[in-house]
């Protein structure tokens, strides 16, 4: 059977298009020349300069706090939401589903803007606390949708068997639901971590003085700083996301 080669060739070109900028960036983090166009020899000086930058370290700490707290909270709230959506089919849940869904499709700038105005109106000072509240808000929806998808292939006969054997309430939850749902919970947590680590716009709108996270730091370095240091920072950041991506992939593959 004769098939056009065009779609396949286009796919290869698209993959090159996707990967090229990232590979160039990584190479440049070891480039002694300030500009990417010429190779000035191998160097680690940009990494050296990065590690001695105290602003970067403060932003790494802030990022860690924001990511850990918002993932923990959104995991609990989001899982309960996914559970409720799966279990009940009432009118109330339809409204609930809408509330979960809309944040997934609106642009970040609207959520950032609305949270900023909300915090200003109720006179909450902007800072790490407001950033965390914002991150929880958008992570809940993603966790809920992930958990809901996992629950769709959940084997209820096991729950029924446990009920027949007398398991109720908390025991049922702890002994049956939690172990069966662990892969889903981990996938939800990983998704929430990656989203929280990556978020710029909502953080930008809800941040106050001294609460820069790593993406905000990267932004100000791109706008006002020394480019090669960003290359080094980006490469490290890439490594971290790749690592998380691999873990996430493993988890979701094991589950399926």
């Amino acid at each position: 059977m004769k098939q056009s080669k065009f779609p396949f060739i286009l796919t290869i070109i698209v993959l090159i298009f996707f990967w090229l900028p990232i590979i160039i960036l990584m190479f440049n983090s070891f480039n002694a020349s300030r500009f990417g166009s010429v190779w000035g020899g191998f160097t680690l000086k940009w990494y050296d300069r990065l590690f001695s930058d105290s602003n970067v370290w403060r932003s790494v700490q802030n990022t860690a706090i924001v990511t850990i707290v918002s993932t923990a909270v959104s995991l609990v709230i989001g899982s309960l939401a996914g559970f409720a959506l799966h279990r009940y089919k009432s009118k109330f849940q339809k409204v609930h589903m809408g509330l979960i869904w809309v944040p997934l499709v609106i642009p970040d700038i609207l959520m950032g803007m609305s949270l900023l105005l909300f915090f200003i109106s109720i006179k909450v000072p902007l800072g790490l606390f407001t950033i965390i509240l914002g991150h929880i808000t958008f992570c809940i929806s993603y966790v809920a949708v992930t958990i809901l998808a996992r629950l769709q292939d959940f084997d209820y006969t096991i729950v029924e068997a446990a009920r027949d054997l007398g398991a109720r309430g908390w025991t049922l939850f702890r002994k049956i639901y939690i172990p069966l749902l662990t892969p889903g919970l981990l996938a939800g947590a990983m998704l929430s971590i990656t989203l929280s680590l990556d978020d710029f716009i909502i953080t930008f709108f809800t941040a106050g003085p001294g609460s820069s996270t790593l993406p905000l730091q990267i932004y100000s370095m791109i706008k006002f700083g020394t480019p090669p240091v960003i290359n080094a920072l980006s490469t490290l950041f890439l490594m971290l996301t790749f690592l998380l991506a691999i873990i996430y992939q493993r988890l979701s593959r094991r589950n399926s």
Partner: peptide
């Protein structure tokens, strides 16, 4: 996977990578 992985990198970093490529001194 080859499609998804590049997009697990930070959004700003990806835009910055293009800034380098399109830079007047860039290749």
């Amino acid at each position: 996977l080859l499609v998804i992985i590049p997009f697990w990198t930070n959004f700003l970093i990806r835009i910055y990578a293009w800034k380098i490529i399109l830079h007047p001194e860039g290749f």
